[in-house]
Design a protein around this nucleic acid. Structure first.
Lengths: 233, 233
DNA sequence: TGTGATGTATAAGTCTGACTTTTTGGTTGC
DNA sequence: GCAACCAAAAAGTCAGACTTATACATCACA
């Protein structure tokens, strides 16, 4: 995704970050900078930079005379894209996927409603194009093409909402969608009902019908929740 | 909030972070590590650590032969609590407050619905206690006491949702609420209707009525949006 | 025996200076 | 005008010496 291993400290992070988020070092574990520097065969300066970054993500805490302490998961900056990526790549991928899908179900409908009010003509056109692309790739095992348009669709919605916080979730949603396609229903064509919903959302946004856009997007996200068996009986 | 100035690099961040998020260095500005180190009267090692942290927040990008480039706001990790705090303390506080309030309006109703399903008896009790505290402080200019219980109420809802991503928004919501009280309607007693809504939400959660909890919480957040004049005509 | 003052070892924190590597931008030569 | 080449600039890396805070143990005193 981002440039991996931009410098030695980046390489260290690519190993340590996933290890910590995977729970390899339980909360409370204590690491020593010098030992880590030796283990990764880097200088202490480089190791310190890596620790500082982990510290800014609230993954660890560095204290004098003690060492580098691993913090409990409830302290982590779970919205940090890097942390999300590490967790998605590791053991608690399912848990992370569920959390993110629930977040989507909260955010995307509201974002769609805002998009209906604020989307520029260009964004409306983009949205329609994405929806059409989804339709065109919805049959005949064209999962890859479908996915690309699906990700683009949701990204445009989030951006067009005009809310910077929503917009920044574009990458996250894209990774959730990609993950879903790669693991769950890889071989079957997407649900035709879902495809129709996307087309209708594009319509609603184009017409500036905020309520309808929100309601339809809520239906989409309900579908995503059901795929992961997150629902009340 | 968090320990300020934990080490020299922390002090540098406390100055540089707010400066960058306030737009003092426009996107594309180039800084040099050595110059910064001199300006802050710290060694290059310390300065490098600070830059690494800013880099992990996507506030800047460091490239060889070029320097430390300030990135455009659309790249920033706007969910980083540190970044949020810096922005709330700076010039675009109003903009940040609006973004966060819209985010609240999306997340909190869904969180309340989940809380109705998953809240433990202890959490239900806490919730009721918070609501009662709000009632008790709702008259006679007891804004401070009211605020404390209001913040606690929303934090419990977010935690009880059982979703880690929601739970981590507790601090953010608390700061939004605190900011609102300190700036807008500081002198008037809170809207009685809002107080009643909180009591009713606590009720709905206790009874496990997810739909009602969600609907009522949506009313609360609509009120918050209206206070900031965020609404469609 | 319990409690407070004192000492000490430890690991992070800081600074400095030398060296390496990458990259930009200009210069040269065809 | 274009290619190859060169030199300067800034980040990146490393090693070593020194400083500082602090957890823990020790000891003295009540």
């Amino acid at each position: 995704m981002t440039t991996p291993g931009r410098g030695l400290h980046g390489h260290v992070l690519d190993t340590l970050g996933p290890a910590i988020t995977a729970g390899e070092y339980p909360a409370g574990s204590v690491l020593r900078t010098d030992e880590l520097a030796q283990r990764f065969d880097v200088s202490r300066s480089v190791m310190r930079e890596a620790v500082r970054v982990l510290e800014s993500m609230h993954l660890v805490e560095s204290r004098r005379r003690v060492g580098v302490t691993v913090l409990p998961a409830c302290e982590w900056n779970v919205y940090d894209p890097q942390v999300i990526r590490w967790r998605l790549a590791g053991a608690d991928r399912p848990r992370q996927l569920r959390s993110l899908t629930v977040l989507r179900s909260a955010v995307e409908p509201v974002a769609a409603g805002l998009a209906a009010r604020h989307a520029t003509p260009e964004q409306c056109a983009e949205l329609t194009e994405c929806a059409l692309g989804m339709v065109a790739n919805s049959r005949g095992h064209r999962l890859q093409g479908y996915l690309v348009h699906d990700m683009a669709f949701h990204r445009v919605i989030l951006t067009a909402s005009g809310n910077e916080m929503f917009a920044r979730l574009g990458d996250v949603v894209a990774e959730v969608l990609a993950g879903r396609t790669h693991h769950e229903v890889m071989f079957e064509d997407p649900d035709p009902a879902a495809v129709t919903l996307h087309v209708q959302v594009a319509e609603a946004v184009r017409e500036g019908d905020a309520d309808r856009a929100e309601r339809l997007t809520r239906e989409i996200t309900v579908g995503a929740l059901q795929e992961l068996d997150i629902l009340a009986p």
